[in-house]
Design a protein around this nucleic acid. Structure first.
Lengths: 210, 210, 210, 210
DNA sequence: GATGAATGAGTATTCATTCAT
DNA sequence: TATGAATGAATACTCATTCAT
């Protein structure tokens, strides 16, 4: 019994340590482009040695992925919660939740962008990241239904996802954080964007391309 | 007079040299994530020595900025041309021109994203980039007018700009180029996005935020 | 008395633990170049913690030496047994036994080579290793007598020792084990080498060096 | 013309630099087990920066190979010269030349041993090293003919090669260089070894193995 | 005694930048 | 001006050893 407790304690401590590192890394990622965050920096910021980090993660890439997925889980949970609300304006609130989360966790957006734009950290990271992204888009598919869109929901989800990300990419600026004014603007855009999504089903004139 | 001519010739030659370097760098940036392009690589590809590059640019950052601004000028000119067309469907065509240019000059988008997301190359680059971005958004302000939007044009421009960039960030994937299917999808999204922008003025339900 | 027994038990357990570690290390050395075996690896393979290893050995070097000496004792015992056989062909059989042992315990040869070639693990290891080597050469001195050599036996022993080691260094190749063909070749060389040693006493032309 | 000269000068200087690095590395390899020689050490000893070494060699492995092959060429040339001498005692002199070279260029022997024993530096180094080794053994095949051996010359060559290497592995001890006494002993062994090789063709008693 | 997490000096390698020619 | 060799600080990662529990 004492044994079990002992091992448990150790595991708990280990878990805390891992979280400390992940959390520190996450904060650093929020401050600068994540490609510029070095192991040494994370170590120093976390108050541990370089070696310690490798005791918890086999490579920087793994750490990145861990942090990213942690954020991914958070945003998914957040969206799931927002999606349970079926009152009027739910669509709008889900979009706002997404933007709100992103503006408070820029680093998630940064890593996401990095991978989307083409950055490759490691080959075995890709499937995990793709899965996470797919899960997010699943929520967006659910979201567009709230706006009354019931046909071509996948493409609608992609469009909404793109549009909201576009708002982020255009208005979030590092490293000094976001000014209130900028935040205000961001939300104004989000609002406008959601409002035009709500007219998705409205007849939109000629749709032929080229 | 001969002197003057001589100096002119020299200046012209110098100008050509600078363009050669910038153009080479631009091509390389189109092939790989721009953070992975090294000075040596540019030098080799341009057929000059690394030292020569530093004769024209005081740092890599400056070169990046130069290339970026060159791209900026191109896209501005492109949009200006598209904006002269006042026939029906012009709005749609301008948007498509923007997306088309970006998908063919991913590097422009990459640098833009990099700077926007938070990458800092040098402090004195920022004003130049900001000016360029503002000029682009000016064109978007012009563009939204084509969609019949005449109030709050600045915010509408920002929203459109964001939305289109969002499409890029979500669907452009490096470095192996874009599959036709992906391209198709990108343009479908663009089309949908423009069509919903065309309903911007439609009543969109309650607009109160929070 | 109970006390004494207790202490004895403890000492015995300790001894077994030490042997476990040494034996595990030995197996690992047989699988890969011994410079590539890490403490962690040994610990994991032995099912103990790294700390435990340091409870029994003050450093990796000491462990190496211990393993080496264990092998040394084995080979000495093997040669001693072979030397008791005084039937015709005994000389040949001793040589073969030596080669056979080495080809099955490459790691012994590796460490031996490492030390001989110049690798220095620790200063205080040297006397122990030298003693071991001397003991081996003592057996070779005994061996050459079997070939009818009775003058200059020390130099003859050295020569034989060298020759057989040379065969090993030239034909043993790690880490994937030795092909049967290579083994065959090795033994062919050994055989030839022993046969020419058996003519050691034959007149060999001018022996003056330089 | 001046241009050509200029380029030539630069190439010459570059060549000298490369030799300086190689020579320095060679000396260091002679002092300690070559796996323990670091890039920093070589750089410091050569009086250049770390980066400079990478200007001449793309990796440490390449440097190792370069140094090794340089030594290989030397020893091959040496043996070729010795082999031209067809006077009595030529066999002995070739063997002595080999041993003499090795004892003055221990590092060559070390690298050779390292590779033979199983050390792997890089996959593309192996063919070059194998070719070099084969060329050396070719000379030994020529050498055994001098001893009147004309059948099974390849195996005889291997045996001689092994025997001489065995002498080296047993008697060369680093890093303090070799005492005169040890050197003396080495040559005595060599002499004895060659003398018994000269009786290779002599009937050697029962040759059956096992 | 046993544990295994923490340490940090050490490794090879890269690359923007400088500067003598 | 053009060159390209030299630089060295910076990178991710390893591993023998220590020590609090």
């Amino acid at each position: 019994m004492a044994w079990a407790t002992f091992a448990q304690l150790r595991r708990k401590k280990r878990e805390r340590r891992r979280e400390l590192i992940a959390e520190t890394a996450r904060e650093l990622f929020a401050q600068k482009a994540f490609k510029e965050v070095t192991v040494r920096e994370i170590a120093r910021a976390a108050g541990v040695s370089v070696g310690t980090i490798y005791n918890y993660y086999s490579s920087v890439g793994e750490l990145f992925v861990d942090v990213f997925l942690e954020n991914g889980r958070e945003i998914i949970q957040l969206m799931d919660e927002a999606l349970e609300d079926r009152n009027p304006g739910a669509f709008r609130r889900v979009c706002q939740a997404y933007i709100l989360y992103l503006s408070g966790n820029i680093m998630f957006f940064q890593i996401m962008s990095h991978f989307i734009i083409g950055g490759v950290l490691s080959e075995d990271a890709r499937p995990k990241l793709n899965e996470c992204m797919r899960a997010v888009i699943d929520r967006f598919e659910e979201t567009v239904r709230l706006a009354g869109i019931h046909t071509n929901t996948r493409i609608a989800a992609h469009t909404l996802f793109s549009a909201l990300n576009g708002i982020m990419i255009s208005y979030i600026r590092n490293p000094d954080g976001i000014s209130d004014e900028l935040k205000q603007h961001t939300f104004r855009l989000t609002d406008k964007m959601t409002s035009i999504f709500e007219s998705w089903n409205a007849p939109a004139g000629p749709t032929q391309v080229k």
